[in-house]
Simulated assay, not measured.
Amino acid sequence: MVAKRGRKPTGKPRATRASASLPPELYSTLQDIAKRKKVSVAWVIRDAAEKYIADQKPLLETRP
Rank of each mutant, 00 (worst) to 15 (best):
M1T: 10
V2T: 14
V2P: 00
A3F: 07
K4F: 04
K4Q: 11
R5K: 13
G6F: 01
G6E: 10
R7Y: 07
R7F: 03
R7C: 02
P9N: 08
P9W: 07
T10R: 05
G11P: 06
G11H: 02
K12C: 01
K12S: 05
P13F: 06
P13V: 06
P13I: 12
R14T: 15
A15E: 11
T16D: 02
R17T: 12
A18Y: 11
A18W: 09
A20L: 14
A20G: 04
S21P: 00
L22F: 08
L22S: 01
P23Y: 07
P23M: 06
P24A: 08
P24I: 13
E25T: 13
E25F: 01
Y27E: 13
S28E: 09
T29R: 15
Q31V: 14
Q31W: 00
Q31N: 10
D32P: 03
I33N: 05
A34K: 09
K35H: 10
K35G: 07
K35F: 00
R36D: 10
R36S: 08
R36P: 00
R36Q: 14
R36N: 11
K37Y: 01
V39P: 06
S40Y: 07
S40V: 06
A42P: 02
W43A: 11
W43T: 15
W43K: 13
V44K: 03
V44A: 07
V44S: 05
D47P: 03
A48F: 08
A49W: 04
K51M: 10
K51G: 06
Y52G: 08
I53F: 00
I53H: 07
A54V: 11
D55G: 06
Q56F: 06
K57N: 03
K57E: 14
P58R: 14
P58A: 10
P58W: 07
L59P: 01
L60P: 02
L60D: 04
E61M: 12
E61W: 05
T62P: 01
R63A: 04
P64Q: 12
P64N: 09
P64Y: 04
P64K: 13
